Every structure is written in structure tokens, then in C-alpha cells.
Simulated assay, not measured.
Amino acid sequence: MFERTAPERFDSLPDIPEPSENPILVGHERAAEMLAGAYRAGKLHHGLLFAGPPGIGKATLAFHLANHLFSNPQPEAAPPRFSPPDPTGQVFRLVAQDAHPSLLHLTRPFVERDKKFKTVITVDEIRRIHRFLSLTPHDGGYRVVIVDPADDLNISAANALLKSLEEPPPRTLFVLITHSLGRLLPTIRSRCQIVRLQPLETPELAGLLRRLGADGGGSDEEIAARAQGSVRNAILLSQFGGAEIADVLQKLVTGRNFDAAEALKLGDAVNGRDRDVQFSIFNRTVLDMINERAVALAAAGDARGAAAAADLWDDVTTTIRDAETYNLDRKQHAAGLAAKLNAAFNA
């Protein structure tokens, strides 16, 4: 069984490495080579924005970049490509444990009183950047701030981050992870170099699943094809019942006669404290279905329908956030969203 060394995050999966402790980087060779070359030439932008769908390795690339910088503090002497990090080396272990003095990883904070993670990255987290950057670099090299994902910044936090991006100290690198560029402030986007990362190819993803020993839900190739290039999606499909949840939800949403009893059974499947991952899968699947519908309607020239789907996406996002924030009944939440989508999709 995998033994976690990294701190647990809001989106951690049991027995799956965090990006900071993952020595395997699959895909993104062109982006990695570009970043290594820019660093070697002394032209690395102070703000990088890694953009792409969830679960394709954006955060893993960010930590591999940090390992590259920390292992090669003199840019001109750095190799032209990333080398696979040594899991037994001191740099890798410190980065994995969130203990490297030149790295600050910001994500949703855990609230000890409530025993759960916040649903946003707060301004208090961003204020840690000022304290971090006020310290003298321990080896004169780069200091790296990773915001993961920047989509989760609330307005106050986003504005506070903008101030840090405007005038960063020398040899400071910000890496912002985003699943949706449109959710970020235009002023943040304008101060960063956008690095667009693509979903993994099916053979790449299937090979990674074999290396991870993922099983269940079909062959590696079948799972990879269904996961749309996302490692996280593939793992959720194969190991956490994601395929079954998606199949049941699809039938509920597209059926002309809504099956309330089946919806409540689905609610049972994602209910309970031991079903946090399944509850997250359900919510993500709902949003993905709405997004796919909006894209399809827009492609068909139905601007009004696409706008309605976009409004539904915003409404459901608020509903999901409220359910997480106020610990609402998950069974009723799931059944209610299934009914709402059924009504919207069959209108």
C-alpha cells in the first residue's frame, strides 16, 4: 500500500500520490522542455499560469519544475531538460513533505475546528506569501510559490495575489494552476505567461494506469479512453466507482420520466463520511455534463440554450459549494440535482 509523505489536501485520493511526491511526469514534454530552456537562458517568466482540464498533470509539472530549480540553483549550469527527480534525494523529499524552505504551496486550508477543508483559498493564505518572500533564500536560488488551483481564490485573495504578482522580488517564481482560465481575474492572467497543457493521449494514460496498478471498471485502454485524457478521471473511474456513478446519473438525467427512487439510491451511494470521494465524483460529473451540454448547444448555434446551460452551471456550482460549506444532506443534494438536470435537459 502507498504510504503518503505529503500533507493531505482537499482533493487527496486514498493510496494515490500527491503531485508533490509523484516522481512520474507523463506527457507535457514540450512544455517541460520550454520551461527548462527558459530557465537555463535566464528568461523564465516570474509568473506562470498552467492551464488545462483537471487531472492532466498540471500540478505535477509545477512540482517537477520546482525540483529542477532547486536541484540546479545556477541557471546557466542547469541541464536543458528535466531529469526524473530522485525520490530518495533530499530535495525531492523536502518538496514532497512541504518542508522545502524555498517552496510555498497554497491550496484550500484545513480548518481544525470544523475538521474539513475550506471551499476556497482565503486571503489569509495569500498573506503567507509576504512572510515567505521576506525571508532570505537559503541558497541564493529561486523561491517558488504554487497556487493550486488559482480557480479557488475568493475575490479578496485574488486581489491580494495580484499585488504580489505586480512587483515580485528577484528570483521569485509564481506558478498558478487553473482548470478554467475564464474564472481568473483578467489582471492576473495579463501578468503571467500562460502555458496551455493538453489532456494526455489515450496510450500515455493507459500506460500510466498500468504503472500505477489501477484496476476495476474495464481494461486500462477502455478507462483511458473514457477519462478524456485526465489521470484523475481515470483513477476515479477505475477505483472509486466513478464509472457507475456517471452511468446512473446519465440515465437519470436523460430519461423522459424521472426515476425518483433511483435518484435516492444514487444519493445513498454518495452519502456518508466514508463516501467523500464518491460525493466529489458525483458533483464533478454533474458539472461536466452541464459543460458538455453548453458546448454542444453553442456548436449547434443555439446561443439561448448555451446561455441557459451556462446559467445552470453557475447555479449548480453555488448549490455544490453550499452543500460542502454547510454540510447539507448529501442524499437529498444528489437526488435534487439529478432532478434539476433532468428538468433542464428535457425542457
Rank of each mutant, 00 (worst) to 15 (best):
R191K: 00
I126K: 00
L287K: 10
R128Y: 00
P14H: 03
V144I: 10
T88C: 08
A31P: 08
K163F: 06
D329T: 05
L287F: 15
P168R: 05
D98C: 14
H333G: 04
L48V: 04
P199D: 05
E324C: 06
L337G: 11
A227P: 01
V144P: 04
L252V: 08
I129S: 05
T325G: 07
G336V: 02
D311P: 12
E201N: 04
V175P: 03
E292V: 06
L181P: 15
K163W: 01
N22Q: 08
N159L: 12
N283Q: 15
L35Y: 00
L266W: 00
L236M: 13
L252H: 08
P169E: 07
V120S: 09
G241A: 11
A32L: 10
G213R: 00
K43Q: 12
S180H: 15
H100D: 02
A298G: 09
E167T: 01
E18V: 07
S238I: 10
S156T: 13
D151N: 11
T254E: 11
F282Q: 05
S280L: 13
P79D: 08
L103K: 09
P87H: 01
V295S: 11
D322N: 13
N327W: 03
D152S: 14
K116H: 07
I155M: 13
L212T: 02
L264D: 07
D86S: 11
A344N: 07
I320P: 06
L287P: 02
D276N: 12
T107G: 13
P199T: 04
D148N: 11
N233L: 12
H28V: 01
P54L: 03
R330H: 07
T5F: 14
G216M: 09
K115N: 06
T119P: 01
A32K: 07
E29K: 11
V248M: 13
H28D: 08
K265V: 09
E221L: 09
F92K: 00
G267M: 01
P73I: 01
H333W: 09
K251V: 13
T325Q: 12
L106S: 06
I235K: 09
A347C: 14
D220G: 00
P75Q: 00
S134Q: 13
R211S: 15
D322P: 12
M34K: 14
A347F: 14
V286A: 04
A214F: 10
T319R: 15
F92P: 09
L264F: 14
R273M: 15
F117A: 03
R40S: 05
L252A: 11
F279P: 12
Y326R: 09
A308T: 14
L103P: 01
A225L: 08
A310N: 14
R211N: 11
V195M: 06
F279L: 15
A335H: 06
V277G: 01
A334N: 02
N233Q: 11
R131Q: 11
K58M: 05
R275T: 14
D268E: 15
P169A: 07
V120P: 07
K118P: 01
N327R: 12
K116D: 13
F63E: 02
P75A: 06
I290R: 04
A269G: 13
P109F: 04
G52S: 10
F117Q: 02
P199F: 01
L48A: 01
